[in-house]
């Protein structure tokens, strides 16, 4: 599907960008949501969970400038099962844009990004791990959204400093073979609050979700390290770490 759109946006080149941490470290996020501190102190006007398909959902928040009701920003976080799904998702977002062709966005925004051209309401669309993000000026007054995008992108990428490693990661098997998938259950002693989210990093393989289960597919022999973080506004971050032996 969307072959014409893929060709138009040079989809085949998306995975071939210069080497950056995002390429070497697999990243996966669950329930990621922008926090007020990332949104210039603007007020969250609404939060919705929209389900597009079994393998994709949108966490939509709309942010209002408290000093100007015509300045609004809409942020859609498309959460998919994997990086591959997120790429397909970005293609669909581009296909659902009426513009004939969207310019490429800054190279340092996500794994690949696109933006609206000048003169129309600013918007940016980019990929990071299993997420596809869309940040758009949504009110009557145009809002420059690019500065917002970098805040979200860096927050997705950053590894928080953790003092308490109480996020438990339990693999189905401690020893795996290259290209073998292993399910990993994760749990905190309590349930994360409404705006809490999980962040996973892996070296030596790829993280993805299979339905609701966190999975890891090893890509090279040796040790594979998986780090997990539970984050919630106003609370200290909690972490977890798992080392797998890859044969």
């Amino acid at each position: 599907m969307y072959e014409e759109i893929k060709e138009k946006y040079n989809f085949s080149s998306w995975g071939k960008k210069r080497k950056r941490p995002g390429r070497e470290i697999s990243i996966l996020l669950k329930n990621f949501i922008p926090w007020e501190e990332d949104c210039l102190g603007w007020k969250r006007a609404s939060k919705e969970l929209l389900t597009e398909a079994d393998d994709r959902r949108i966490i939509r928040t709309v942010w209002d400038n408290p000093e100007d009701k015509n300045s609004r920003v809409l942020i859609d976080v498309y959460e998919t099962f994997s990086r591959t799904h997120a790429q397909e998702c970005l293609i669909q977002i581009l296909a659902n844009n009426q513009l004939e062709l969207l310019p490429k966005g800054p190279d340092d925004l996500g794994e690949v990004s696109f933006v609206h051209p000048e003169g129309i309401p600013p918007a940016a669309f980019w990929l990071r791990g299993n997420l596809c993000l869309s940040v758009c000026s949504f009110g009557k007054k145009m809002v420059d959204v690019l500065s917002w995008t970098y805040k979200f992108d860096s927050r997705m990428m950053e590894k928080p400093k953790v003092e308490r490693f109480i996020l438990t990661l339990t693999p189905q098997s401690e020893q795996v073979n290259v290209e073998q998938e292993v399910g990993i259950s994760f749990s905190l002693p309590w349930r994360l609050g409404e705006d809490g989210y999980y962040k996973f990093f892996a070296k030596g393989g790829e993280l993805f979700f299979k339905e609701k289960e966190l999975c890891f597919r090893a890509q090279k022999k040796g040790e594979a390290v998986i780090e997990a973080f539970a984050l919630e506004a106003g609370r200290e971050p909690y972490g977890g770490r798992l080392t797998l032996k890859v044969e």
């Binding site: 006007a45 609404s46 919705e48 929209l50 597009e52 939509r60 709309v62 809409l74 669909q92 659902n96 844009n97 009426q98 513009l99 609206h116 129309i120 309401p121 918007a123 869309s134 758009c136 000026s137 949504f138």
Partner: peptide, 22 residues
Amino acid sequence: NPITFFGSSPYFLSSFLGQLKA
């Protein structure tokens, strides 16, 4: 705005109505 905010598949009518009501 050229972006489809509510209507691809399905049509997020609840979201549209919520924005109107707000």
